[in-house]
């Protein structure tokens, strides 16, 4: 029973309760870097790390946090994890850190992190909270990675920095520019809701 509960906690955010295409949360900080697959990968890993560990920490402390200053405490915990991500990137992946610029810091205000902490971690045990945070992060990750793959392929003719399409391909400059992000995200939401997410789109 406990095992299947955990499994359900894990699979729900990947499919019918996906944070991006069902709840439309947390696109602010990452959408801006989805014109390159590599940058997107690092950002979504950062978001997943922050969501999972913040959820776990808040859940551990959930009975002790005074409800009046709940939000402040949560923000503090989230910010600490995000600073860790920033410090690690700066020391070990400096090139990536430079390219992501202020977007790493913006993970703090990513609605998914705070959303999962408030909606799940405050009322659940640490292990399920960790799993929920991890799964929400991954559910978020794959949607954004798909968007990034499409944008990079059409906009630069490459994937992960390697040229895939031959010289016959004319790059669609609009794809790497900001409007491309809006269009591809909209189309992704459309396609996913039309196919797998049909029964949940009216939730």
């Amino acid at each position: 029973m406990a095992k299947s509960g955990l499994l359900k906690t894990f699979t729900e955010p990947l499919g019918k309760n996906n944070p991006v295409f069902v709840q439309i949360l947390g696109i602010c900080s990452t959408l801006a870097v989805t014109n390159k697959l590599q940058n997107t990968m690092v950002m979504v890993l950062g978001v997943t790390f922050a969501t999972a560990l913040s959820s776990w920490t808040v859940s551990l402390l959930r009975k002790r946090i005074p409800s009046r200053i709940r939000m402040m405490v949560e923000t503090m915990i989230i910010a600490a994890y995000v600073i860790l991500v920033d410090i690690i990137l700066k020391a070990y992946y400096p090139e990536m850190w430079k390219q992501l610029g202020p977007y790493v810091g913006l993970i703090i205000t990513n609605c998914i992190v705070m959303g999962r902490v408030e909606a799940f971690a405050l009322t659940n045990k640490p292990l399920p909270s960790l799993v929920d945070g991890l799964a929400s992060g991954l559910g978020y990750a794959y949607v954004l990675l798909i968007i990034a793959a499409v944008r990079e392929l059409m906009g630069s003719g490459s994937l992960w920095g390697y040229r895939i399409l031959g010289p016959w391909w004319t790059n669609w400059a609009i794809m790497v520019m900001p409007p491309g992000g809006f269009f591809i995200l909209a189309i992704a939401i459309w396609v996913i809701r039309e196919t797998v997410g049909k029964e949940v789109s009216h939730a």
Binding site: I24, P179, G180, G181, F182, F183, L185, A186, I189, W190, R193, E194, K198, S201
Partner: peptide, 14 residues
């Protein structure tokens, strides 16, 4: 129907 709400808003934003 699948494009209603956020979908169409994002296209307009584009």
């Amino acid at each position: 129907p699948a494009l209603e709400g956020p979908g169409i808003s994002l296209i307009i934003a584009g």
